[in-house]
Design a protein around this nucleic acid. Sequence first.
DNA 1: TGTATATAACTTACTGGTTAGTTATATACG
DNA 2: CGTATATAACTAACCAGTAAGTTATATACA
Lengths: 205, 205
Amino acid sequence: MTLPKTRWRRRSAARPDEILDAALTAFIEAGFDAARMDDIAARAGISKAGVYLYFGSKEALLRALIDREIAPIATLLAGFAETGGADPEGTLHLMATVAIERLSDPRFFAVPRLIIAISGRFPDIADYYRTEIVERAIAALSSLIAKGVAQGVFRPVDPVLAVRAVVGPVLFAALWRHVLRGDTDVPPARVIEGQIDLLLNGLKP
Amino acid sequence: MTLPKTRWRRRSAARPDEILDAALTAFIEAGFDAARMDDIAARAGISKAGVYLYFGSKEALLRALIDREIAPIATLLAGFAETGGADPEGTLHLMATVAIERLSDPRFFAVPRLIIAISGRFPDIADYYRTEIVERAIAALSSLIAKGVAQGVFRPVDPVLAVRAVVGPVLFAALWRHVLRGDTDVPPARVIEGQIDLLLNGLKP
DNA sequence: TGTATATAACTTACTGGTTAGTTATATACG
DNA sequence: CGTATATAACTAACCAGTAAGTTATATACA
Protein backbone atom coordinates (compact mmCIF):
# COMPACT_ATOMS: atom_id res chain seq x y z
CA MET A 1 0.00 0.00 0.00
CA THR A 2 1.66 3.16 -1.21
CA LEU A 3 -0.27 5.92 0.45
CA PRO A 4 -0.29 9.05 -1.66
CA LYS A 5 1.65 11.83 -0.02
CA THR A 6 -0.29 14.37 -2.02
CA ARG A 7 -4.02 15.00 -1.99
CA TRP A 8 -4.27 14.84 -5.75
CA ARG A 9 -2.13 14.75 -8.89
CA ARG A 10 -2.11 16.52 -12.17
CA ARG A 11 -3.07 14.07 -14.88
CA SER A 12 -4.40 16.28 -17.64
CA ALA A 13 -3.54 13.80 -20.39
CA ALA A 14 -5.24 10.85 -18.75
CA ARG A 15 -8.22 12.61 -17.21
CA PRO A 16 -10.57 12.85 -20.19
CA ASP A 17 -10.47 9.12 -20.80
CA GLU A 18 -10.86 8.36 -17.12
CA ILE A 19 -13.87 10.67 -16.98
CA LEU A 20 -15.42 9.08 -20.04
CA ASP A 21 -14.90 5.61 -18.58
CA ALA A 22 -16.66 6.78 -15.43
CA ALA A 23 -19.45 8.46 -17.37
CA LEU A 24 -20.10 5.36 -19.43
CA THR A 25 -20.32 3.22 -16.31
CA ALA A 26 -22.65 5.69 -14.64
CA PHE A 27 -24.85 6.01 -17.73
CA ILE A 28 -25.11 2.23 -17.99
CA GLU A 29 -26.18 1.91 -14.39
CA ALA A 30 -28.52 4.87 -14.12
CA GLY A 31 -29.37 6.10 -17.60
CA PHE A 32 -28.59 9.60 -18.83
CA ASP A 33 -30.93 11.62 -16.66
CA ALA A 34 -30.45 9.76 -13.41
CA ALA A 35 -26.67 9.60 -13.69
CA ARG A 36 -25.16 12.19 -11.35
CA MET A 37 -22.21 14.33 -12.28
CA ASP A 38 -20.98 13.98 -8.70
CA ASP A 39 -20.95 10.23 -9.10
CA ILE A 40 -19.17 10.35 -12.45
CA ALA A 41 -16.53 12.59 -10.88
CA ALA A 42 -16.08 10.31 -7.89
CA ARG A 43 -15.62 7.27 -10.15
CA ALA A 44 -13.01 9.18 -12.11
CA GLY A 45 -11.25 10.03 -8.87
CA ILE A 46 -11.77 13.77 -9.03
CA SER A 47 -14.30 16.36 -7.95
CA LYS A 48 -17.35 17.38 -9.90
CA ALA A 49 -15.88 20.74 -10.81
CA GLY A 50 -12.93 18.84 -12.21
CA VAL A 51 -15.18 17.15 -14.71
CA TYR A 52 -16.31 20.55 -15.94
CA LEU A 53 -12.70 21.48 -16.69
CA TYR A 54 -12.73 18.89 -19.46
CA PHE A 55 -16.37 18.63 -20.53
CA GLY A 56 -18.76 21.54 -20.68
CA SER A 57 -21.90 19.62 -19.80
CA LYS A 58 -23.45 16.23 -19.27
CA GLU A 59 -24.52 16.27 -22.90
CA ALA A 60 -20.91 16.85 -23.95
CA LEU A 61 -19.95 13.64 -22.19
CA LEU A 62 -22.39 11.70 -24.31
CA ARG A 63 -21.15 13.34 -27.48
CA ALA A 64 -17.58 12.46 -26.57
CA LEU A 65 -18.62 8.88 -25.89
CA ILE A 66 -20.12 8.61 -29.37
CA ASP A 67 -16.79 9.72 -30.83
CA ARG A 68 -14.68 7.46 -28.67
CA GLU A 69 -16.77 4.30 -28.51
CA ILE A 70 -18.74 4.12 -31.72
CA ALA A 71 -17.19 6.21 -34.48
CA PRO A 72 -14.11 3.96 -34.84
CA ILE A 73 -16.37 1.01 -35.63
CA ALA A 74 -18.19 2.98 -38.32
CA THR A 75 -14.79 3.77 -39.82
CA LEU A 76 -13.77 0.13 -39.62
CA LEU A 77 -16.92 -0.99 -41.41
CA ALA A 78 -16.44 1.63 -44.11
CA GLY A 79 -12.93 0.25 -44.62
CA PHE A 80 -14.22 -3.29 -45.05
CA ALA A 81 -16.71 -2.18 -47.66
CA GLU A 82 -14.01 -0.40 -49.64
CA THR A 83 -11.51 -3.23 -49.54
CA GLY A 84 -13.88 -6.15 -49.86
CA GLY A 85 -15.51 -5.37 -53.19
CA ALA A 86 -14.11 -8.51 -54.81
CA ASP A 87 -16.02 -10.76 -52.42
CA PRO A 88 -19.32 -9.12 -51.50
CA GLU A 89 -20.75 -12.21 -49.83
CA GLY A 90 -17.73 -12.83 -47.61
CA THR A 91 -17.39 -9.15 -46.75
CA LEU A 92 -21.07 -8.93 -45.84
CA HIS A 93 -20.53 -11.85 -43.52
CA LEU A 94 -17.47 -10.22 -41.99
CA MET A 95 -19.19 -6.88 -41.42
CA ALA A 96 -22.22 -8.49 -39.83
CA THR A 97 -20.00 -10.57 -37.57
CA VAL A 98 -18.02 -7.54 -36.42
CA ALA A 99 -21.22 -5.62 -35.78
CA ILE A 100 -22.91 -8.31 -33.73
CA GLU A 101 -19.75 -9.03 -31.76
CA ARG A 102 -19.27 -5.40 -30.84
CA LEU A 103 -22.93 -4.96 -29.97
CA SER A 104 -22.84 -7.91 -27.62
CA ASP A 105 -20.55 -5.88 -25.34
CA PRO A 106 -22.80 -3.96 -22.92
CA ARG A 107 -20.38 -1.06 -22.75
CA PHE A 108 -20.61 -0.67 -26.50
CA PHE A 109 -24.34 -1.10 -26.80
CA ALA A 110 -24.86 1.42 -24.00
CA VAL A 111 -24.25 4.38 -26.31
CA PRO A 112 -26.85 3.57 -28.97
CA ARG A 113 -29.22 2.77 -26.16
CA LEU A 114 -28.66 6.21 -24.66
CA ILE A 115 -29.29 7.78 -28.06
CA ILE A 116 -32.60 5.98 -28.29
CA ALA A 117 -33.53 7.17 -24.84
CA ILE A 118 -32.70 10.85 -25.21
CA SER A 119 -33.06 11.56 -28.93
CA GLY A 120 -36.42 13.21 -28.37
CA ARG A 121 -34.97 15.89 -26.13
CA PHE A 122 -31.58 16.23 -27.79
CA PRO A 123 -32.31 16.21 -31.51
CA ASP A 124 -28.82 17.57 -32.17
CA ILE A 125 -27.31 14.43 -30.75
CA ALA A 126 -29.68 12.25 -32.72
CA ASP A 127 -28.75 14.04 -35.93
CA TYR A 128 -25.07 13.81 -35.08
CA TYR A 129 -25.35 10.09 -34.45
CA ARG A 130 -27.35 9.54 -37.62
CA THR A 131 -24.94 11.40 -39.91
CA GLU A 132 -21.64 10.42 -38.27
CA ILE A 133 -22.39 6.81 -37.41
CA VAL A 134 -25.49 5.27 -38.91
CA GLU A 135 -25.47 6.87 -42.34
CA ARG A 136 -21.78 6.06 -42.74
CA ALA A 137 -22.31 2.43 -41.79
CA ILE A 138 -25.35 2.18 -44.05
CA ALA A 139 -23.52 3.78 -46.96
CA ALA A 140 -20.72 1.24 -46.52
CA LEU A 141 -23.09 -1.72 -46.56
CA SER A 142 -25.10 -0.21 -49.35
CA SER A 143 -22.12 0.29 -51.65
CA LEU A 144 -20.99 -3.25 -50.97
CA ILE A 145 -24.38 -4.62 -51.94
CA ALA A 146 -24.42 -2.43 -55.04
CA LYS A 147 -21.07 -3.92 -56.03
CA GLY A 148 -22.51 -7.39 -55.58
CA VAL A 149 -25.48 -6.50 -57.75
CA ALA A 150 -23.16 -5.11 -60.45
CA GLN A 151 -21.13 -8.30 -60.38
CA GLY A 152 -24.24 -10.41 -60.66
CA VAL A 153 -23.69 -12.25 -57.38
CA PHE A 154 -26.75 -10.52 -55.91
CA ARG A 155 -30.19 -9.95 -57.40
CA PRO A 156 -30.93 -6.36 -58.40
CA VAL A 157 -32.64 -5.49 -55.11
CA ASP A 158 -33.05 -2.07 -53.50
CA PRO A 159 -29.79 -1.69 -51.54
CA VAL A 160 -31.56 0.29 -48.82
CA LEU A 161 -33.90 -2.59 -48.08
CA ALA A 162 -31.09 -5.11 -48.26
CA VAL A 163 -29.14 -3.09 -45.71
CA ARG A 164 -32.10 -3.20 -43.38
CA ALA A 165 -32.34 -6.94 -43.84
CA VAL A 166 -28.75 -7.20 -42.57
CA VAL A 167 -28.83 -4.59 -39.83
CA GLY A 168 -32.32 -5.30 -38.52
CA PRO A 169 -31.62 -8.78 -37.17
CA VAL A 170 -28.32 -7.62 -35.67
CA LEU A 171 -30.19 -4.84 -33.90
CA PHE A 172 -32.81 -7.26 -32.71
CA ALA A 173 -30.17 -9.54 -31.26
CA ALA A 174 -28.67 -6.65 -29.29
CA LEU A 175 -32.02 -5.49 -27.93
CA TRP A 176 -33.00 -9.04 -27.05
CA ARG A 177 -29.83 -9.53 -25.10
CA HIS A 178 -29.34 -6.21 -23.37
CA VAL A 179 -32.81 -4.72 -23.05
CA LEU A 180 -35.07 -7.72 -22.74
CA ARG A 181 -32.52 -9.91 -20.98
CA GLY A 182 -33.61 -12.85 -23.09
CA ASP A 183 -31.79 -16.14 -23.51
CA THR A 184 -28.52 -15.88 -25.38
CA ASP A 185 -27.56 -19.52 -25.57
CA VAL A 186 -26.60 -19.32 -29.25
CA PRO A 187 -23.26 -17.56 -29.80
CA PRO A 188 -23.39 -14.40 -31.96
CA ALA A 189 -21.24 -15.91 -34.71
CA ARG A 190 -23.70 -18.78 -35.17
CA VAL A 191 -26.64 -16.38 -35.25
CA ILE A 192 -24.98 -14.48 -38.09
CA GLU A 193 -24.34 -17.75 -39.87
CA GLY A 194 -28.02 -18.60 -39.99
CA GLN A 195 -29.13 -15.04 -40.58
CA ILE A 196 -26.88 -14.58 -43.60
CA ASP A 197 -27.96 -17.91 -45.04
CA LEU A 198 -31.56 -16.78 -44.75
CA LEU A 199 -30.74 -13.45 -46.32
CA LEU A 200 -28.90 -14.98 -49.27
CA ASN A 201 -31.14 -17.94 -50.02
CA GLY A 202 -34.51 -16.70 -48.85
CA LEU A 203 -37.35 -18.42 -47.07
CA LYS A 204 -38.82 -20.12 -50.11
CA PRO A 205 -37.65 -23.61 -51.04
CA MET B 1 -67.17 29.98 -22.33
CA THR B 2 -69.04 27.97 -19.72
CA LEU B 3 -67.28 28.60 -16.48
CA PRO B 4 -67.48 25.57 -14.21
CA LYS B 5 -69.72 26.23 -11.22
CA THR B 6 -67.88 23.54 -9.28
CA ARG B 7 -64.19 23.39 -8.47
CA TRP B 8 -63.91 19.80 -9.61
CA ARG B 9 -65.99 16.78 -10.52
CA ARG B 10 -65.96 13.15 -9.61
CA ARG B 11 -65.02 11.18 -12.67
CA SER B 12 -63.55 8.01 -11.23
CA ALA B 13 -64.46 5.89 -14.23
CA ALA B 14 -62.83 8.19 -16.78
CA ARG B 15 -59.81 9.31 -14.76
CA PRO B 16 -57.43 6.39 -15.32
CA ASP B 17 -57.55 6.72 -19.10
CA GLU B 18 -57.24 10.47 -18.93
CA ILE B 19 -54.20 10.11 -16.70
CA LEU B 20 -52.62 7.54 -18.99
CA ASP B 21 -53.19 9.78 -22.00
CA ALA B 22 -51.45 12.57 -20.14
CA ALA B 23 -48.63 10.33 -18.98
CA LEU B 24 -47.98 9.07 -22.49
CA THR B 25 -47.81 12.60 -23.83
CA ALA B 26 -45.46 13.67 -21.06
CA PHE B 27 -43.24 10.61 -21.49
CA ILE B 28 -43.00 11.25 -25.24
CA GLU B 29 -41.97 14.84 -24.70
CA ALA B 30 -39.59 14.43 -21.78
CA GLY B 31 -38.71 10.76 -21.40
CA PHE B 32 -39.44 8.75 -18.28
CA ASP B 33 -37.11 10.45 -15.80
CA ALA B 34 -37.65 14.02 -16.86
CA ALA B 35 -41.44 13.72 -17.08
CA ARG B 36 -42.94 15.40 -14.01
CA MET B 37 -45.86 13.96 -12.12
CA ASP B 38 -47.14 17.50 -11.62
CA ASP B 39 -47.20 17.97 -15.35
CA ILE B 40 -48.94 14.67 -15.99
CA ALA B 41 -51.58 15.63 -13.43
CA ALA B 42 -52.09 19.07 -14.95
CA ARG B 43 -52.53 17.57 -18.42
CA ALA B 44 -55.11 15.19 -17.03
CA GLY B 45 -56.90 18.13 -15.43
CA ILE B 46 -56.37 17.08 -11.83
CA SER B 47 -53.83 17.57 -9.06
CA LYS B 48 -50.78 15.45 -8.52
CA ALA B 49 -52.23 13.78 -5.48
CA GLY B 50 -55.14 12.81 -7.68
CA VAL B 51 -52.85 10.80 -9.89
CA TYR B 52 -51.72 8.85 -6.85
CA LEU B 53 -55.31 7.84 -6.14
CA TYR B 54 -55.24 5.74 -9.29
CA PHE B 55 -51.59 4.83 -9.82
CA GLY B 56 -49.17 4.02 -7.05
CA SER B 57 -46.07 5.39 -8.71
CA LYS B 58 -44.55 6.71 -11.88
CA GLU B 59 -43.45 3.19 -12.70
CA ALA B 60 -47.04 1.97 -12.38
CA LEU B 61 -48.04 4.44 -15.09
CA LEU B 62 -45.57 2.86 -17.49
CA ARG B 63 -46.78 -0.63 -16.64
CA ALA B 64 -50.37 0.42 -17.28
CA LEU B 65 -49.36 1.96 -20.59
CA ILE B 66 -47.83 -1.34 -21.69
CA ASP B 67 -51.13 -3.06 -20.97
CA ARG B 68 -53.28 -0.45 -22.62
CA GLU B 69 -51.19 0.49 -25.65
CA ILE B 70 -49.19 -2.56 -26.61
CA ALA B 71 -50.73 -5.75 -25.25
CA PRO B 72 -53.80 -5.59 -27.54
CA ILE B 73 -51.54 -5.63 -30.59
CA ALA B 74 -49.71 -8.71 -29.31
CA THR B 75 -53.08 -10.37 -28.92
CA LEU B 76 -54.10 -9.29 -32.41
CA LEU B 77 -50.93 -10.75 -33.92
CA ALA B 78 -51.41 -14.01 -32.03
CA GLY B 79 -54.91 -14.20 -33.51
CA PHE B 80 -53.60 -13.73 -37.04
CA ALA B 81 -51.09 -16.53 -36.59
CA GLU B 82 -53.78 -18.90 -35.34
CA THR B 83 -56.27 -18.13 -38.08
CA GLY B 84 -53.87 -17.72 -40.98
CA GLY B 85 -52.25 -21.13 -41.01
CA ALA B 86 -53.62 -21.96 -44.45
CA ASP B 87 -51.73 -19.08 -46.07
CA PRO B 88 -48.44 -18.56 -44.23
CA GLU B 89 -47.01 -16.20 -46.82
CA GLY B 90 -50.04 -13.92 -46.90
CA THR B 91 -50.41 -13.96 -43.13
CA LEU B 92 -46.73 -13.11 -42.68
CA HIS B 93 -47.28 -10.17 -44.96
CA LEU B 94 -50.35 -9.09 -43.03
CA MET B 95 -48.65 -9.32 -39.64
CA ALA B 96 -45.61 -7.36 -40.80
CA THR B 97 -47.85 -4.69 -42.29
CA VAL B 98 -49.85 -4.30 -39.08
CA ALA B 99 -46.65 -4.13 -37.05
CA ILE B 100 -44.97 -1.49 -39.17
CA GLU B 101 -48.14 0.59 -39.40
CA ARG B 102 -48.64 0.60 -35.65
CA LEU B 103 -44.99 1.36 -35.00
CA SER B 104 -45.08 4.35 -37.31
CA ASP B 105 -47.41 6.05 -34.81
CA PRO B 106 -45.21 7.95 -32.34
CA ARG B 107 -47.66 7.39 -29.50
CA PHE B 108 -47.38 3.66 -30.03
CA PHE B 109 -43.63 3.51 -30.49
CA ALA B 110 -43.15 5.61 -27.38
CA VAL B 111 -43.73 2.66 -25.07
CA PRO B 112 -41.11 0.29 -26.48
CA ARG B 113 -38.76 3.24 -26.59
CA LEU B 114 -39.32 3.86 -22.89
CA ILE B 115 -38.69 0.20 -22.18
CA ILE B 116 -35.36 0.42 -23.98
CA ALA B 117 -34.46 3.50 -21.99
CA ILE B 118 -35.30 2.25 -18.50
CA SER B 119 -34.91 -1.53 -18.69
CA GLY B 120 -31.54 -1.36 -16.95
CA ARG B 121 -33.02 0.19 -13.83
CA PHE B 122 -36.40 -1.55 -13.89
CA PRO B 123 -35.63 -5.16 -14.81
CA ASP B 124 -39.12 -6.14 -13.66
CA ILE B 125 -40.66 -4.02 -16.36
CA ALA B 126 -38.26 -5.40 -18.95
CA ASP B 127 -39.17 -8.96 -17.97
CA TYR B 128 -42.85 -8.11 -17.99
CA TYR B 129 -42.57 -6.60 -21.46
CA ARG B 130 -40.57 -9.53 -22.74
CA THR B 131 -42.95 -12.22 -21.51
CA GLU B 132 -46.25 -10.43 -22.07
CA ILE B 133 -45.52 -8.71 -25.36
CA VAL B 134 -42.40 -9.77 -27.20
CA GLU B 135 -42.41 -13.49 -26.48
CA ARG B 136 -46.08 -13.72 -27.36
CA ALA B 137 -45.56 -11.92 -30.67
CA ILE B 138 -42.49 -14.01 -31.44
CA ALA B 139 -44.33 -17.23 -30.60
CA ALA B 140 -47.11 -16.23 -32.96
CA LEU B 141 -44.74 -15.53 -35.84
CA SER B 142 -42.70 -18.59 -35.04
CA SER B 143 -45.67 -20.96 -35.11
CA LEU B 144 -46.79 -19.46 -38.40
CA ILE B 145 -43.40 -20.05 -39.95
CA ALA B 146 -43.34 -23.58 -38.55
CA LYS B 147 -46.66 -24.21 -40.26
CA GLY B 148 -45.23 -22.93 -43.51
CA VAL B 149 -42.25 -25.23 -43.16
CA ALA B 150 -44.54 -28.17 -42.43
CA GLN B 151 -46.57 -27.36 -45.56
CA GLY B 152 -43.45 -27.12 -47.65
CA VAL B 153 -44.04 -23.49 -48.67
CA PHE B 154 -40.98 -22.46 -46.61
CA ARG B 155 -37.54 -24.03 -46.41
CA PRO B 156 -36.80 -25.88 -43.15
CA VAL B 157 -35.12 -22.87 -41.52
CA ASP B 158 -34.74 -22.13 -37.82
CA PRO B 159 -38.00 -20.33 -36.99
CA VAL B 160 -36.27 -18.16 -34.40
CA LEU B 161 -33.92 -16.74 -37.00
CA ALA B 162 -36.72 -16.33 -39.51
CA VAL B 163 -38.70 -14.35 -36.95
CA ARG B 164 -35.74 -12.02 -36.48
CA ALA B 165 -35.49 -11.58 -40.22
CA VAL B 166 -39.08 -10.32 -40.18
CA VAL B 167 -39.04 -8.28 -36.98
CA GLY B 168 -35.56 -6.81 -37.37
CA PRO B 169 -36.24 -4.66 -40.41
CA VAL B 170 -39.55 -3.51 -38.93
CA LEU B 171 -37.69 -2.44 -35.80
CA PHE B 172 -35.07 -0.69 -37.85
CA ALA B 173 -37.72 1.26 -39.73
CA ALA B 174 -39.24 2.46 -36.46
CA LEU B 175 -35.91 3.52 -34.99
CA TRP B 176 -34.91 5.22 -38.21
CA ARG B 177 -38.10 7.22 -38.24
CA HIS B 178 -38.61 8.10 -34.61
CA VAL B 179 -35.15 8.07 -33.07
CA LEU B 180 -32.86 9.11 -35.89
CA ARG B 181 -35.41 11.33 -37.62
CA GLY B 182 -34.28 9.97 -40.98
CA ASP B 183 -36.06 10.34 -44.29
CA THR B 184 -39.33 8.45 -44.50
CA ASP B 185 -40.28 9.12 -48.08
CA VAL B 186 -41.23 5.51 -48.77
CA PRO B 187 -44.58 4.54 -47.21
CA PRO B 188 -44.47 1.68 -44.65
CA ALA B 189 -46.59 -0.63 -46.80
CA ARG B 190 -44.10 -0.39 -49.67
CA VAL B 191 -41.19 -1.01 -47.33
CA ILE B 192 -42.84 -4.22 -46.18
CA GLU B 193 -43.47 -5.19 -49.80
CA GLY B 194 -39.79 -5.09 -50.64
CA GLN B 195 -38.68 -6.50 -47.30
CA ILE B 196 -40.93 -9.55 -47.59
CA ASP B 197 -39.82 -10.15 -51.17
CA LEU B 198 -36.24 -10.12 -50.00
CA LEU B 199 -37.05 -12.44 -47.13
CA LEU B 200 -38.86 -14.94 -49.34
CA ASN B 201 -36.60 -14.96 -52.38
CA GLY B 202 -33.24 -14.09 -50.88
CA LEU B 203 -30.41 -11.94 -52.09
CA LYS B 204 -28.92 -14.46 -54.49
CA PRO B 205 -30.07 -14.58 -58.11
C1' DT C 1 21.49 22.62 -9.30
C1' DG C 2 18.33 24.83 -6.11
C1' DT C 3 14.55 27.83 -5.56
C1' DA C 4 11.14 31.59 -6.72
C1' DT C 5 7.39 32.27 -9.52
C1' DA C 6 3.62 31.42 -12.72
C1' DT C 7 -0.17 28.92 -13.89
C1' DA C 8 -2.70 24.69 -15.03
C1' DA C 9 -5.19 21.49 -12.54
C1' DC C 10 -7.57 20.79 -8.87
C1' DT C 11 -11.04 21.35 -4.60
C1' DT C 12 -14.62 23.08 -1.40
C1' DA C 13 -18.67 25.20 -0.73
C1' DC C 14 -22.43 27.04 -2.58
C1' DT C 15 -26.59 28.69 -5.60
C1' DG C 16 -30.83 28.26 -7.24
C1' DG C 17 -33.25 25.63 -8.46
C1' DT C 18 -35.88 20.83 -9.18
C1' DT C 19 -39.36 16.84 -7.87
C1' DA C 20 -41.58 12.18 -6.20
C1' DG C 21 -44.48 11.17 -2.97
C1' DT C 22 -47.43 12.29 1.59
C1' DT C 23 -50.65 14.46 4.78
C1' DA C 24 -54.38 17.02 6.27
C1' DT C 25 -58.44 18.93 4.72
C1' DA C 26 -62.36 20.07 1.68
C1' DT C 27 -66.21 19.04 -1.46
C1' DA C 28 -69.27 16.58 -4.72
C1' DC C 29 -72.87 13.59 -4.91
C1' DG C 30 -75.61 9.06 -4.11
C1' DC D 1 -75.10 13.22 5.54
C1' DG D 2 -71.44 9.70 4.78
C1' DT D 3 -67.82 8.80 2.13
C1' DA D 4 -65.38 8.43 -2.23
C1' DT D 5 -62.97 11.65 -4.65
C1' DA D 6 -60.49 15.49 -4.87
C1' DT D 7 -57.02 19.34 -3.56
C1' DA D 8 -53.36 22.48 -1.33
C1' DA D 9 -49.63 22.56 1.11
C1' DC D 10 -45.99 20.22 2.57
C1' DT D 11 -41.70 17.09 3.19
C1' DA D 12 -37.43 15.52 2.30
C1' DA D 13 -34.97 14.85 -0.49
C1' DC D 14 -32.36 15.63 -5.04
C1' DC D 15 -28.70 17.76 -8.49
C1' DA D 16 -26.40 20.60 -12.67
C1' DG D 17 -23.50 23.94 -12.89
C1' DT D 18 -20.41 27.90 -10.78
C1' DA D 19 -17.34 30.94 -8.03
C1' DA D 20 -13.65 31.48 -5.29
C1' DG D 21 -9.85 29.64 -3.26
C1' DT D 22 -5.89 25.95 -3.08
C1' DT D 23 -2.07 22.94 -4.59
C1' DA D 24 0.92 20.47 -7.74
C1' DT D 25 4.24 21.01 -11.10
C1' DA D 26 6.82 23.21 -14.91
C1' DT D 27 10.19 26.45 -15.81
C1' DA D 28 13.06 30.63 -15.48
C1' DC D 29 17.00 32.05 -13.67
C1' DA D 30 20.63 32.81 -9.78
